[in-house]
Simulated scan of single mutants.
Amino acid sequence: MKQIILPAGLLFLGSIAIGQGRNDKEMEQRITFITLGVNDINASIDFYENKFGWKRSAQGSDDLIVFELCGLYLALYPKNALAHDAGVDAVGQGFRGFTISYNVRSVQEVDDLIAVLKSRGVHVVKEPQKVFWGGYSSYIGDPDGNLWEIAYNPYLKHE
């Protein structure tokens, strides 16, 4: 049953996302769902709920934890089960080739948020600093080594 939940959920979300017409050749520019394969679901729940302060969505289950994020969903799912679902090997270490960014509205907000996360025991990979593209950012790691950039981007439109 556990391995059926994720594919069924993705199928459901995929059916919602098809609203652009069957004959279109291009995808809409959007992302709906990001699922992180995690080694220890309880450690990841602790990180996202107690370090970030996020609240779980009722859409999840015991082994599929979902957070609603302003029009995007972030899910946590056991790494081995997610790899099995995708038909790939779960083994792999080091940089994963992507980061997730959390953008704030000022340089001071980056500094303040990093200070709070440090006080909660979050591993800071890169201290806040001015960056080559004109912004200001820092990187933190979650329990599985996924990199989160905490950034101020002066060119980004905020809601």
Score class of each variant (00 low, 15 high):
W133T: 02
V110R: 02
I100P: 06
R96E: 09
G94P: 05
V110N: 03
F132V: 09
E127Y: 02
H123Y: 13
G94I: 01
K126D: 14
S101L: 05
K126Y: 10
D89P: 01
V107R: 14
R96S: 09
R120Q: 12
V107L: 04
S101I: 03
Y102A: 05
I114L: 06
S137E: 14
A90S: 15
V116Y: 11
V124Q: 09
R105L: 11
V125T: 14
L113M: 12
A115L: 08
K130P: 11
V91A: 13
D112R: 11
F95L: 10
Q129A: 14
Y102W: 06
I114M: 03
D111F: 07
G135R: 06
V124C: 08
V88D: 04
V125N: 13
D89W: 00
R120W: 04
K130D: 15
K126L: 12
P128E: 04
I100R: 06
G134Q: 08
D111T: 04
D111S: 03
Y136R: 09
K126C: 09
I100G: 02
V104C: 01
Y102V: 05
Q108Y: 11
G92D: 02
K126P: 00
V122K: 11
R120N: 13
G97C: 08
P128H: 07
V116Q: 13
R96L: 03
F98C: 07
K130I: 06
G92F: 02
Q93C: 09
S119P: 01
I100L: 15
S119Q: 11
I114K: 03
L117H: 07
V124F: 12
N103K: 05
L117V: 01
Y102G: 01
H123E: 14
V125S: 13
F95D: 15
L117E: 02
V104K: 00
H123M: 13
G134N: 10
G97K: 01
V125F: 14
K126I: 13
V131P: 04
I114R: 03
V116A: 08
E127D: 13
Q93H: 13
V122W: 09
Y136A: 04
G97Q: 06
L117Q: 07
V107C: 05
I114H: 03
I100Q: 10
H123R: 13
V125I: 15
S119W: 01
Q93R: 13
K126R: 15
V104H: 01
F132R: 12
G97I: 01
V110P: 00
K118D: 05
H123N: 13
E127T: 07
R105F: 08
P128G: 07
L113G: 02
A90C: 10
S137Q: 13
Y136D: 08
S119M: 00
G121K: 10
R105G: 11
V122D: 10
W133A: 03
E109T: 00
R96D: 02
L113N: 05
V110M: 03
V122Q: 10
A115D: 11
V116M: 09
D89A: 08
G94Y: 01
S101A: 15
